[in-house]
Design a binder for these strands. Structure first.
Lengths: 227, 227
DNA sequence: CGATATTGACATGCGTCATTGTCAAACGTA
DNA sequence: TACGTTTGACAATGACGCATGTCAATATCG
């Protein structure tokens, strides 16, 4: 063959480096994935539809992602980290009070769901049906949120006040309450004001904080036999 | 062609009437649907696999069901009505006390989930991703359970004690708590005893019963500012 | 300008699965 | 026994979608 090999450093196209162009395409695909997965659901989402939304051809899909499942995982992680950041930002400056913190967190989460209903479909519905691997991903994520709630409860209330309760179970219960509340809200078309929904969910957190059935509160109080 | 037409009434095969045979096949398909949908999930379940499990050929599938989705709907309704019956049976004889009734109901539901984990996959996971029609089905079903909880709460506590709360929202929150609790339990391999899980979930019901932030309880009690 | 890199539109191969159809064997009844 | 019914095994068809490949048009840079 030809002995002379012309090796050219291209690396720039429309003024943008190759690496950055690729990163942009990946980002566009994640946006498109959010749109398509979040509206028609994972199983009805075709690679073609995603690429059409991203204004890219299928070749570029496989440049950034192994397959449809991999894109879903990326979208999912994207949303989770976004929510986690927002949650932390909302909780850090809040007063160290269970009710107030619950309201701050729930306001952030519920607000995000109302602002972008596509989140819900991805975070709470499809994620469990994509694959075992994505399922594990979601366990870690919701476990992380439950961990947050658990830490909050454990910090707020000393050991002796929550005797007989398993903080992990309670935390997952509270997380489930929030999830189903927001889903009900969404299905009804977000009729109720955000504050109302937050309030009705936060009450569960507050009520638990005020009520520990087997507790030995600071003030002597007869433990009425059965709960 | 032949003028004589031999019309024979068969109607019996292996001693069973045609109608009953068909009903049996339908029932076997529902059982197989529970097995396959409940293990690999709806989207990975093929008609062939279902028929294999039912010991029937594909022809008989379409004799009883329009398509895979129709079978799923039938399986779903089957499970829901089963659970509803069990729940009513558990609640009717129970004392009219929120904590006790919650425990009775949760014990029934959680026990059913542990006895047959396939239920969970169908009732709480796949049902939202099958189709819009099945989705509506599920809204009605969970709405029914929430209605039950709501009625319970409204009966137990008079209007003035739940001022500021929307019973529908609270009920959906509690239902979500139960759902996520049992899912966490299942994912962990049902390590904790049933009573423990029930207790940690029932506490949410009880706590709410004992705590109405804007309530004006019968006994005068200083409303200590924050929870 | 000319060579190469990059892109976009589209085609192709491949496998899977739903759904219908074929056919012979087993069965029940006259 | 003889005939129509019921059943089970399996083939045929057609649609769909993933994943890869082709090719011309456009952009970049020496």
């Amino acid at each position: 063959m030809a002995t002379k090999i012309t090796r050219r450093k291209t690396s720039r196209f429309r003024g943008i480096a190759a690496e950055e162009r690729q990163a942009q395409r990946r980002s566009m695909l994640i946006d498109a994935g959010l749109e398509v997965f979040g509206t028609v659901g994972f199983h009805a989402a075709t690679v073609r539809a995603i690429c059409t939304h991203a204004n890219l051809t299928e070749r570029y899909f496989y440049e950034s992602f192994e397959n449809r499942e991999a894109l879903f995982a990326a979208v999912y992680e994207h949303l989770v980290s976004h929510l986690r950041d927002a949650l932390v930002a909302a909780l850090l400056p809040a007063p160290r009070d269970v009710g107030t913190m619950a309201r701050a967190g729930l306001t952030t989460l519920f607000g995000a769901m109302r602002d972008d209903p596509r989140y819900m479909r991805i975070l709470f519905v499809d994620v469990f049906t994509v694959s075992d691997e994505v399922d594990r991903l979601s366990r870690r994520a919701t476990g992380g949120f439950a961990q947050l709630v658990q830490t909050l409860v454990e910090t707020m209330y000393p050991q002796d006040r929550r005797a007989g309760l398993d903080p992990r179970l309670v935390a997952h219960g509270l997380v489930g309450a929030a999830m189903n509340t927001v889903m009900y809200w969404a299905y009804g078309g977000y009729k109720e004001p955000l504050e109302t929904v937050v309030h009705n969910c936060a009450v569960l957190f507050e009520a638990l904080g005020a009520y520990f059935p087997q507790a030995a509160p600071t003030k002597t109080k007869s433990r009425s036999g059965k709960a």
